[in-house]
C-alpha cells in the first residue's frame, strides 16, 4: 500500500495526496473536490519550498549537526483541522478524530529519507 493509502486508513484523515515541486501535477484521495485538491497542492508546495529554504538558512547558523536541517516537513494546526506535509505528501486531518503524533511520526518515518531535490 502507498503512503497515501496508509494515511487514508488512519482515523480522522480527511484527504491525503502528493504534489510535484515542478509543474502543477498532483494526486489525492479523500473527501475533497478536484479543485480543492489542486489548491491544497499549490499551497503545500509553496510552504514546503519556503521551509526547505529556511531550514537551509538555519543550517548556516548551527555550529555542527543541527537536527532541524535539512528541512523535511511542516504542520499547521487550526481549531478544527490540521495539515501536515513531509517531502511531497500532504494530508488534511480532523483534530477531534486524528492522532496527530501517529500521523507525523508515520510520515516522517516513511518520507524523511526522500531526496532533498525539490523536483
Amino acid at each position: 500500500m502507498s503512503v497515501i493509502s496508509n494515511l487514508m486508513e488512519m482515523p480522522g484523515m480527511v484527504a491525503a495526496g502528493e504534489f510535484s515541486f515542478r509543474g502543477d501535477r498532483y494526486t489525492y484521495q479523500g473527501n475533497m473536490s478536484e479543485e480543492m485538491a489542486r489548491m491544497a497542492s499549490i499551497m503545500c508546495r509553496s510552504t514546503s519550498m519556503g521551509t526547505h529554504m529556511e531550514a537551509d538558512m538555519l543550517g548556516t547558523f548551527c555550529t555542527q549537526d543541527c537536527g532541524l536541517v535539512p528541512g523535511k516537513g511542516w504542520a499547521v494546526r487550526g481549531p478544527a483541522f490540521s495539515v501536515c506535509v513531509v517531502h511531497n505528501v500532504f494530508c488534511f486531518m480532523d483534530n477531534t478524530k486524528a492522532d496527530f503524533n501517529k500521523v507525523l511520526h508515520y510520515m516522517h518515518d516513511e518520507l524523511a529519507h526522500s531526496s532533498d531535490d525539490l523536483i
Binding site: 489548491m39 499549490i42 519550498m49 537551509d56
Partner: peptide
C-alpha cells in the same frame, strides 16, 4: 542560491494570490 529559492517562493506566492 538565495535568489533562486526566492524566485520560486515569489512564483508560489503569486500563484496563491491569483488563486
Amino acid at each position: 542560491s538565495f535568489a533562486h529559492d526566492y524566485k520560486r517562493l515569489t512564483q508560489a506566492n503569486a500563484d496563491q494570490l491569483s488563486m
